[in-house]
Amino acid sequence: MSQTVQQSLQSARQQLAQLVPTSEASIEAQILLMHILGVNRAWLLAHATDLMPENSVQDYAHLVQRRLQGEPVAYILGYREFFGLKLTVTSDTLIPRPDTETLVEAALQKIAGPMRVLDLGTGTGAIALAIASHAPQSQVTAVDASERALKVAETNRHSLQLANVSLLHSHWYTALAQQTFDLIVSNPPYIEAADQHLSQGDLRFEPLSALAAGEDGLADIRQIIAQAPGYLNQGGWLMLEHGYNQAEAVQNLYQTAGFAHIQTLRDLGDNPRVTLAQWLAA
């Protein structure tokens, strides 16, 4: 049976409203159809009464069913927009989220001149590539313990043609002997291992190793902070994304390690999300 663009959108919206709030269902229905037809939102509005090609109706229905089974939209599409960049995303990587843009903005405010930047646990390369594209004078090293994730990051680096980013297979600092940096950034795993959210929503589909970190969620953050002084230049900064309820604990870890000028920034939802500190000790 033939369907118009508008009818297809309405049907998908009604189905997706079983999974997400109505406002999100409407947006997701549009995003999935734009992907199938290769058009933008303005085209959908202008061609609402056009008949859908029969194969597109079937393809669209298939994507909607995948979403109804809980698969994240970013994995269905194979990409996600982050800080103005279109990034390839696969199930081997964490899906870049708007809250992480807070970390990128904080980093860019500290970069002046040809600084050396390290991104720990780069995943898709989102943070490293966003910094490199907006601070072309910087030299960015991005590491990840997952070789599959690094392949995704390399795909993104290549497509964005960013020559000031180098990728390295490393579990945190292990492959960085003798290297020091002016700025270290990371969005490490920080969810408690027993957190029920790990078995809900999009998180069910994302790599657990990129999400959970021990009983209190701070295992990786502890290691990153404790070892950071050996890889920071005098006056360098360490910036970490963390859980909404972890700011005080992270501040204490910085203080114990001897960092100064400790500050926590809030994300788009007004949650304490990024804590940064400066290394001044000899």
Rank of each mutant, 00 (worst) to 15 (best):
A48N: 06
A226T: 12
A135M: 00
L51I: 07
H261Q: 13
L33Y: 14
I191K: 04
S91A: 14
T90Q: 00
T256R: 09
S56W: 12
G121V: 06
N271S: 01
E54T: 10
Y231H: 15
A25N: 03
G84W: 10
T49D: 15
V185M: 05
Q179S: 04
A177V: 10
M239F: 03
T124A: 07
S11I: 06
P114Y: 00
D270L: 08
D267R: 01
W237T: 04
G78Q: 15
D92S: 13
Q137D: 15
I127D: 13
H169Q: 05
L19W: 03
W172M: 12
E28V: 10
N271L: 08
A135L: 01
Q65T: 06
Y60H: 05
Q15S: 10
Q10G: 02
V140H: 08
A163F: 00
D59M: 12
A213S: 12
R97A: 09
L211M: 03
G123S: 05
N156L: 09
L253D: 12
Q18K: 11
E147L: 15
H169P: 00
Q200W: 05
V185C: 14
L16H: 03
G236R: 09
L176D: 03
D119V: 07
E105D: 05
Q246M: 13
A213Q: 13
E101I: 09
A17W: 00
L253T: 06
H134R: 11
S170I: 14
I184V: 06
R266F: 13
D99I: 01
L276Q: 15
A194I: 00
I127F: 10
E105A: 14
E215R: 01
A228P: 04
Q179T: 02
V20L: 14
A177L: 03
S133D: 14
S133G: 02
A226S: 04
D119M: 08
I262Q: 10
G125V: 12
L9E: 07
